[in-house]
């Protein structure tokens, strides 16, 4: 366990139980998942039982208990994207990466997820790779987008 790294995160907060979600968010951002050993330390420091941490970690979609890939692909499945065929984009990505939605490729390069709405509805279907948005992503654009990250 990388204790100094975790300490840096914990030192940003006052150590109250209400800090649980922000602390977990910082860990998720830094590690790309919530490692078990780190959660034990969080439980002690914030005086929050591990069961509650597990409950929070599995309730919210942004948390993952298994490591995520280097690049996070999010395909928007908001209403407009749905109407414009975002499921086909997700399927095409899934087919090309050889991984189901919700999982990470074996080489740990890509995680593929769908999200409720990315809020760029006028450019549906929309997808995001890390912090970059891609609008009007038809199936034929998928290989070009993936190439940028390979």
């Amino acid at each position: 366990m990388d204790l100094p790294r975790l300490e840096t995160i914990l030192s940003r907060y006052e150590g109250e139980s209400a800090d649980l979600i922000p602390v977990l968010q910082d860990i998720q951002d830094a590690y790309s998942y919530l490692p078990k050993e780190e959660l034990h330390v969080v439980s002690e420091r914030l005086q929050v039982p591990l069961t509650q941490i597990y409950s929070v970690a599995t309730f919210f979609k942004m948390f993952s208990l298994i490591p995520k890939g280097k690049h996070q692909i999010k395909v928007c499945t908001g209403t407009t994207c749905h109407l414009k065929g975002s499921h086909r984009v997700a399927e095409s990505l899934s087919h090309r990466l050889g991984v189901e939605v919700g999982y990470t490729t074996k080489d740990m390069q890509f995680s593929l997820d769908t999200v409720g709405c990315l809020g760029s509805c006028a450019q549906a279907p929309v997808m995001m790779v890390d912090d970059k948005y891609f609008g009007r992503t038809t199936v034929d654009k998928v290989p070009k987008i993936l190439k940028l990250y390979k």
Binding site: A18, I21, V56, K61, G116
Partner: peptide, 21 residues
């Protein structure tokens, strides 16, 4: 942290207190 139900005010408040929404 990614939960639609947290748009509901009481759920939002619970999640701000460190609980599930």
């Amino acid at each position: 942290a990614g939960a639609f139900v947290c748009g509901e005010e009481t759920a939002l408040i619970h999640s701000m207190e460190g609980n599930i929404g």
